[in-house]
Design a protein around this nucleic acid. Structure first.
Lengths: 334, 334
DNA sequence: ATGAAAGCGCTAACAG
DNA sequence: CTGTTAGCGCTTTCAT
């Protein structure tokens, strides 16, 4: 009941168990790993003893002698935005298929920057996949020879990368808005008002190219932020009849803001989101969006990493940097 | 450019680098770890060489000699259901605060059972937190002395556990439905029609205790499944005016099903979900739900594990098994 | 500032 | 069936 074994001090080692059982360490190994070449009663006696002594094989010693099992790090800005779990889920699935383990670090809350995440991950993993932002280069430096696959950072100097063709996406959205007769357009960007995101830049450029006027507003990257920002937008710019957002989560918030302002979507104002997360099908109206198959993105990232890890793909090369395209999923909101 | 170093064969070791640099292995260690007692130019030369040779210190050897950094496994049934990332996010945050790493395994897709997940995790981690279902006992057996904290499996024979007071929650929901005048109630459970979930059992019992008649229907644990099931439900049981669902995701689907059937919520039929995930605030009408603070749940799980790991909390004891209560968040749907 | 020796805990290979 | 001998790759003494 109360006589806990070696609760304090150092963990029991294989030698302690061997001594206690009066056998050699090899026999302990055989017992613990259900190997052959050991009598059943010996096996059970040793296992029982190990249990009592709180013995757990050191995973480091084991890994050292057995050769590494690949572990990859996954650095995610915010598991709270449904986009990222959808992506993470796919990465975990693909990695599991290869027998890799995935160590996840979410640096969204207090836990600092993407670089901090990579620092935490570094001693544990053989490679990193992540939304690293502009620190991607530093992350790669931190990992030295181990490959980093960065997402959505086309300029990143990393072994591999996956980015998106936002010009293409923006064209698709603008075209759709034109087709349904929206002419007074706005774009809701994520981030501070002083800084246009890559997506925002692409949308602005596409609009300019088409000679379309575009009002750009900003909010935090969250549904609430978007809802409030859209409230202000319609107050200041009542004529707006078409809205593009940075991502689907913000589109969901925008829909709420529009509803709160008494606008009907898409009649008074059409809305197009970006990313194509499942959430878009649950809200009302269903979200028209620039859709990405997140499972494809995860698969592409893991495939890329696989090539980099095996040497089949040269790091830092053009072949290691993919560009994916969105497609327009037309649903109820535009 | 093209002459990649030791691309194939085995990874370079510290000895290889030492030999190439014409120094001893300690000097390499000093250079790699930015330690003192080494001349600046030596340090740089060694680092440069290491980079060229693709040398990465083995994390196993390092861990072996330096003592383990705690790593916990997180076994998740389905990262695709927004409930789980919300929980995972909190666990990752709390673990990061303690300097622990989190290895995530999602066994939702093809990757088999929770037990498979624990098997994959086992060699990598010092403990496991997870939604393990009835296999929780086996998972604990697999991990031997290392603690398992199981969620939502009150009967699990694990070192620690967190469960929920579904009777209490069911009472809250039924009371609310009564207060707003719903009398022809249905409960939408997740899983096969042959098996009532723990939540379903609690709801049934609570209804029976209150003398309320309750129609129980089943669907897959997904929004689509729920939507379809609710479509059938209203067809067969048109009088239904109050609906409880297994979780919020299914409530979202139910809302869609009701809308498709031309029912207005909550006027024709009130809906109450369970869990209180952020999604509930994005859909229309906003979801009234039995809410849990997922951050609290994650915190509780990690706190528990911490106690178990340090020995402050006795494993398998009553003190290591918590029961949390939902509260009713009244919003638009009921 | 650098090197030599010792050992972390484990398992593979070979005895017996 | 069991034990002995070698290392895995690294960092810690302790010398030099």
């Amino acid at each position: 009941m109360s006589s806990s074994p070696g609760r304090s001090a150092k963990r029991a080692t294989i030698l302690d168990v061997a001594a206690a059982a009066g056998v050699s360490r090899q026999t302990v190994t055989r017992a613990m790993n259900d190997m052959t070449g050991i009598r059943q009663d010996t096996r059970e006696r040793v296992q029982q003893l190990a249990r009592e002594m709180g013995y757990t094989p050191s995973r480091y010693a084991k890994g050292l002698v057995q050769g590494a099992r690949t572990a990859i790090g996954l650095a995610i800005p915010d598991l709270t935005n449904p986009y990222f779990p959808a992506f993470a889920s796919s990465v975990v699935e693909m990695a599991t298929l290869r027998g890799w383990n995935v160590v996840v670090d979410d640096f969204g809350h207090g836990s600092g920057s993407s670089l901090d995440a990579v620092k935490r991950l570094s001693p544990q993993v053989d490679a990193v996949i992540g939304y690293l932002g502009p620190s991607a280069d530093k992350a790669q430096a931190l990992l030295g020879q181990r490959p980093v696959v960065v997402l959505d950072e086309p300029a990143g100097l990393t072994a591999g990368g996956i980015s998106f063709d936002y010009s293409f996406a923006a064209g698709l959205a603008l075209e759709r808005l034109g087709a349904i007769g929206s002419t007074r357009l706005a774009y809701l960007d994520a981030g501070p008002a002083t800084l246009l995101s890559a997506r925002g830049a692409a949308v602005s450029r596409a609009a300019a190219d088409l000679g379309i006027e575009l009002t750009v507003v900003h909010s935090r990257d969250s549904a609430e932020g978007a809802r409030d920002a859209v409230g202000s937008l319609v107050a200041e710019y009542p004529a707006v009849d078409g809205l593009l957002t940075f991502n689907d989560l913000m589109a969901a918030g925008a829909l709420k803001g529009l509803a709160a302002s008494g606008r009907s979507v898409p009649r008074d104002c059409a809305v197009i989101g970006m990313d194509g997360i499942p959430l878009g099908l649950l809200i009302t109206p269903e979200l028209t969006t620039l859709s990405l198959d997140l499972r494809d993105v995860g698969r592409a990232a893991v495939d890329l990493l696989d090539g980099l890890l095996t040497g089949a793909l040269p790091p830092y090369g053009a072949g290691s940097h993919l560009t994916l395209r969105h497609e327009l999923a037309i649903r109820g909101s535009a």
